[in-house]
Design a protein around this nucleic acid. Structure first.
Lengths: 338, 338
DNA sequence: CTGAAAGCGCTAACAG
DNA sequence: CTGTTAGCGCTTTCAG
């Protein structure tokens, strides 16, 4: 493994000069620079980022902390899409990604701060953490630069990127109301998720705006699971016969609701309209295709990395970024005939 | 940021002793150890892995090189599942993961070896690389410990984990033949993929074993894309009217074939039987559900990490690991009636 | 324009 | 059982 020392020896200069030449400093004679570059290439030199990180006190590495990397969550590629976006932006800007995993943290009994400091990551992007997760508190209190995905919490070192979940929910309700639906149920995720609270807020606000009474008993929690959502939808539809439309806080749950309708012999969209959220790949492949509130998940990851790196490099930047949602109308919604 | 130096000062010992105490060496007085542990906790000490890596010449980090981390490949969560498995095993064994990305490599014009050396990863897991990828050659020639996913290439420092793709294809054919199908077409991926070549080999071998002539003109490449597969299936079904069953080298392509059938007014499975490969999430949610050759993708990643780490830690181990496939019979295949 | 020297935080002989 | 010393590979004052 060649080092700058080797290069220095062969090129007949000092390590200082080698370092400066290789890092593109201006105060190096052009000839010396050429010589050094040639030797470096010849010796097949690669800089040692560990050594560099040690002395520079930064690693050009950002940590990605996701609770979603487990066996179960494989079917939901939200996490993966975020990761792809983060990876794209980070690598373009010269940062590498290191994966943390909350399960591991607990198992090793390491705190968030410890993890970050050990690996000397310059900053962190966090995704899929619950609002009652103890790490969230730590994140906000620590001074490690951090960007949260879908969690609108901020401080001097913490920013976030999210979509306007309340607005997204409103779009769904507006669509349903415009189709003549007045009795709309909701299958939400769970109270610990910021997005759930926001989508519920949007849902009830929209109803309010349309002068439709908001009935809490028509909102059930599907825990973001297909199966659970199916059960809850079954309950919703049997106990509240007037309901002609369901807004689900995720596509996966909408799929569950779809199944529930099938079991009850209800046709979607003729008898019941269903709107999902997320626009996962499956949404355009189910039958009927799902009308859904789409978010650009890849873009969320991209923006998260972009924001974090701007913070790291001391740029003046807005630490709260909102992305847009788009209502995608497919086959699962139709005019109300009841 | 506290260092062992700080601890040494406060505890009134030398840095050596601190280092040894913290690393659990036996030759430290129990009392001193306690004292040091207490001070470390009090000072909120975190070891600096960069410094440690620098002196130890290893980083307890493994690189994950995937070509699948791009915007397009989001729909195919094979990559993600592998990643989850790798992450699980690696983190359990105390290794962190760092993400590389081939696009980045090209763009930065860095070779595989450079990437690995710069980051001082102890080893690498590679996934989704094509057989003609220049990096593959480099991998085999370099002496960096490496595990390949689904590429049966090995050397003294390179191992692999894969499923028996030929056998998987055979299972599919066997199933179709047992249902009475004699004219079976195939939508393959592309010639550059090892898995495609293997699945094709299994396909033709199986036909041979059943004394069914293998007709190359009934094998078309769908390039692992849904859309392309749909087009090819359309061709296959119109040009070869005798075909009553199609074996697709991926579920995504099977979905495309499904669409082609729909367009031609052919019922699946009554008129045409279709078998996919992979058992992606979508396979159990399409209509009809896909009969498919399932592989435990998560497990592939898990084994890859396990194998790599065994190699890194100098354990005697079999550097070629094969996982099993399982034929999953659902709704897209039925008895041949033509 | 170039070099000597110090030091990032840690581990590992070696000597007590 | 403990401390002294050297050094991993790199960047960075500070002098020439």
């Amino acid at each position: 493994m060649t080092t700058i020392k080797d290069i220095a020896r062969v090129a007949g200069v000092s390590v200082t000069t080698v370092s400066r030449a290789l890092n593109g400093y201006s105060d190096v004679n052009e000839k010396t620079r050429q010589k050094i570059a040639a030797v470096a290439r010849e010796l097949n030199y690669s800089p040692n980022t560990l050594a560099r990180g040690l002395v520079m006190q930064k690693s050009k590495t950002i940590g990605l902390l996701v609770s979603g990397i487990s066996r179960e969550s494989v079917k939901d590629n939200f996490t993966f899409e975020v990761l792809c976006g983060v990876n794209e932006r980070a690598s373009t800007l010269g940062y590498d990604l290191i994966l943390f995993n909350t399960n591991t943290m607990m198992q090793r009994e390491k705190t968030y701060t410890q993890l970050c400091r050990e690996r000397r990551v310059d900053g962190v992007i966090i995704q899929g953490i619950k609002k009652d997760d103890p790490y969230l508190k730590e994140v906000v209190e620590s001074d490690i630069p951090c960007v949260l995905v879908d969690i609108p919490v901020h401080s001097s070192s913490v920013g976030y990127v999210t979509t306007d979940n309340a607005l997204g929910a409103k779009k769904a309700v507006k669509h349903l109301v415009s189709l003549g639906h007045q009795h709309i149920g909701m299958i939400n995720g769970h109270g610990d998720a910021f997005v759930s609270r926001e989508r519920l807020r949007g849902f009830s606000q929209a109803l309010h705006e349309y002068r439709i009474p908001f009935r809490p008993e028509r909102v059930l929690d599907g825990e973001f699971q297909e199966k659970k959502a199916e059960e809850e939808a079954l309950k919703l539809l049997t106990e509240h016969k007037k309901v002609t439309a369901i807004f689900c806080a995720s596509d996966l749950m909408a799929l569950g609701a779809l199944k529930a309708c099938k079991e009850l012999g209800l046709d979607v969209p003729k008898d019941i309209s269903i709107v999902g959220y997320d626009n996962i790949f499956l949404a355009s492949h189910s039958s009927p295709n799902l009308t859904t509130v789409g978010q650009e998940v890849y873009q969320i990851g991209y923006e998260a990395a972009d924001l974090l790196i701007e913070m790291l490099e001391g740029k003046e930047t807005n630490m709260k970024r909102y992305l847009d949602t788009k209502l995608i109308i497919r086959e699962s919604t139709a005019k109300n005939h009841s």
